[in-house]
């Protein structure tokens, strides 16, 4: 096996480049090295001007999402040897504006995340003296899968709907809304439904399913959104046939 591999990295320096360009670097191709190790090697040994985000190196922080050979990937979990003999194309996440090199602007996602109220909403807060909220393993099981989201935005990068319509709330935010809707401690599903049962919300999703394939944590955002559509439709039917007091039942 070749002991070196070539990385073709997208460069964009707004102060000097009008368009992004590709720059090629040779990095050691070690068995235990991931694409992020290659990028850090470039930064430390070859070219200190390369910019990219990273933090934990273990698939938890969600910072190092990039497009590797056209696929949205966490670069800390993408091994160089899987792409040998190379070359490997490393580009920023798709569907986001590029700030510099491999760094994208994620303010849009952050604002959408807040919009879905991804926290436990209570109608009335309980004093601490009353103790914790208890949950059975079954109740935990209801939402646990969706709580694994690390906000890495790979799903936004994979979603063609988000690429074509940037107003779409998007997979991760909708999956996180579902995560709290399905939590037995939460009472905010009606508030979220009013905000998300709209064209830019769940109904913007056309069920391409690519978000689920891209997700490194098996969250299944596409499934979460379809379940959300089902419950929104049922709530609408209920309100239509039983206009009296149906809104409480959501």
């Amino acid at each position: 096996m070749a002991d070196r591999i070539s990385l073709q990295v997208l460069r964009y320096r707004p102060e000097q480049d009008g368009q992004p360009t590709m720059q090629e670097y040779e990095v050691p191709c070690l068995k235990e090295w991931v694409v992020l190790d290659g990028l850090n090697y470039i930064k430390d040994q070859l070219d200190g001007t390369l910019s990219f985000r990273w933090s934990c190196r273990m698939g938890i922080c969600g910072s190092c999402g990039m497009t590797v050979n056209g696929e949205p990937k966490l670069t800390c979990a993408t091994f160089l040897t899987d792409y040998a003999p190379g070359p490997i194309r490393v580009e920023p996440l798709r569907n986001f504006p590029i700030v510099r090199d491999l760094v994208v602007e994620m303010g849009d996602f952050m604002r959408k995340l807040v919009k879905v109220k991804p926290w436990v909403v209570r109608k009335e807060e309980r004093p601490l003296s009353e103790g914790e909220f208890r949950q059975t393993p079954e109740q935990l099981d209801e939402y646990k899968q969706y709580s694994m989201c690390i906000n890495c935005m790979l799903c936004y990068s994979a979603c063609p709907v988000y690429g074509l319509d940037p107003l779409f709330v998007g997979p991760a935010a909708l999956a996180l809304a579902q995560r709290y809707n399905l939590d037995s401690r939460d009472e905010g599903s009606k508030e979220r439904m009013d905000a998300l049962s709209q064209h830019d919300g769940i109904w913007g999703c056309t069920f391409v399913g690519e978000c689920t394939r891209a997700c490194p944590k098996n969250v299944d955002p596409a499934g979460a959104i379809q379940r959300y559509k089902l419950s929104a439709s049922l709530a609408w039917l209920k309100a239509f046939f039983m206009p009296w007091g149906a809104r409480d039942g959501r």
């Binding site: 992004p20 504006p97 063609p160």
Partner: peptide
């Protein structure tokens, strides 16, 4: 910063 936005191709 001057963000770079790539247009989605019609043939995406």
């Amino acid at each position: 910063p001057r963000w770079y936005r790539k247009r989605v191709s019609t043939y995406w």
